[in-house]
Amino acid sequence: MKQPFGIILAGGQATRMGGGDKGMRLLGGQSLLSRVEARLAPQVASIALNANGDAARFADLGMPVIADSVSGFVGPLAGVLAGMDWAAAQGADTIVTAAADTPFFPCDLVPQLLLASEGMKHPLVLAATPDAKRGRARHPTFGLWPVALRDDLRDALHDGLRKVVLWTDMHGGREALFPQEDAFFNVNTPDDLARAEAML
């Protein structure tokens, strides 16, 4: 299988952080976004940022910026679709998504997702971690997605589907289990940012 293309998902509205571009918040002197890019870039063939609004504000990152093609902030699946369309135009078969507010995700994210997808006609895998209450927790913004299913996803979004796991389950999606419970710790609030500083 060809190496996937990478998409950083930053299309949300960051309401719990007080709005604005959460990915531009600084952590240890670097933006969350640049930390995520530094982790994802070595694992993928090419990388782009999914964000809405004026793309010029990300010019210094030097990445293509792709907006949601489905209007109205309908959630991460819109960013996944935008990434699929962008990657498909360049001949990619798959994309891997990572959230812009999750700076410590595993450095072997892509290899583990690919391993879990072996034998699948349409590689579709979400990252998961152990969870004391539920057994395991899925992380729907971290996944391997086949561009071949992009029109199906587009139809589902236009039909009102919003939950990532509903769509992945419909297509026999799998999970790649990462052993650390906090592997996908994400920065949603100012308190989380303080915790991330301590984790550094």
Score class of each variant (00 low, 15 high):
residue 173 G to P: 06
residue 150 R to G: 02
residue 125 V to C: 08
residue 71 S to I: 00
residue 78 A to I: 01
residue 166 L to S: 14
residue 184 F to H: 12
residue 168 T to G: 07
residue 179 P to Q: 12
residue 123 P to V: 10
residue 102 T to E: 10
residue 69 S to D: 15
residue 79 G to Y: 09
residue 192 D to S: 10
residue 117 S to M: 05
residue 187 V to L: 02
residue 183 A to V: 02
residue 137 A to P: 06
residue 193 L to C: 12
residue 173 G to L: 12
residue 116 A to Q: 07
residue 179 P to T: 08
residue 195 R to C: 07
residue 105 F to N: 07
residue 82 A to M: 10
residue 169 D to M: 11
residue 172 G to E: 11
residue 168 T to Y: 08
residue 129 T to E: 09
residue 194 A to T: 10
residue 180 Q to S: 09
residue 132 A to F: 11
residue 184 F to M: 12
residue 182 D to Y: 05
residue 85 D to Y: 02
residue 170 M to I: 03
residue 90 Q to E: 06
residue 179 P to V: 10
residue 188 N to E: 14
residue 153 L to S: 06
residue 162 R to P: 02
residue 90 Q to V: 01
residue 97 T to V: 03
residue 166 L to M: 09
residue 98 A to I: 04
residue 90 Q to S: 13
residue 144 L to P: 08
residue 130 P to R: 06
residue 84 M to Q: 14
residue 166 L to Q: 12
residue 98 A to H: 06
residue 117 S to L: 01
residue 151 D to A: 08
residue 79 G to N: 12
residue 196 A to P: 03
residue 80 V to H: 07
residue 118 E to A: 14
residue 114 L to W: 00
residue 86 W to T: 01
residue 139 H to I: 03
residue 146 P to G: 04
residue 138 R to N: 05
residue 148 A to Q: 11
residue 126 L to N: 04
residue 138 R to A: 13
residue 168 T to Q: 08
residue 132 A to C: 09
residue 77 L to E: 08
residue 155 D to R: 15
residue 91 G to K: 04
residue 177 L to C: 10
residue 166 L to C: 08
residue 166 L to G: 10
residue 196 A to I: 08
residue 197 E to F: 00
residue 69 S to Y: 00
residue 150 R to Q: 15
residue 138 R to G: 08
residue 87 A to M: 04
residue 112 Q to K: 14
residue 80 V to A: 03
residue 122 H to D: 15
residue 119 G to Y: 05
residue 179 P to Y: 12
residue 134 R to K: 14
residue 75 G to K: 02
residue 138 R to K: 10
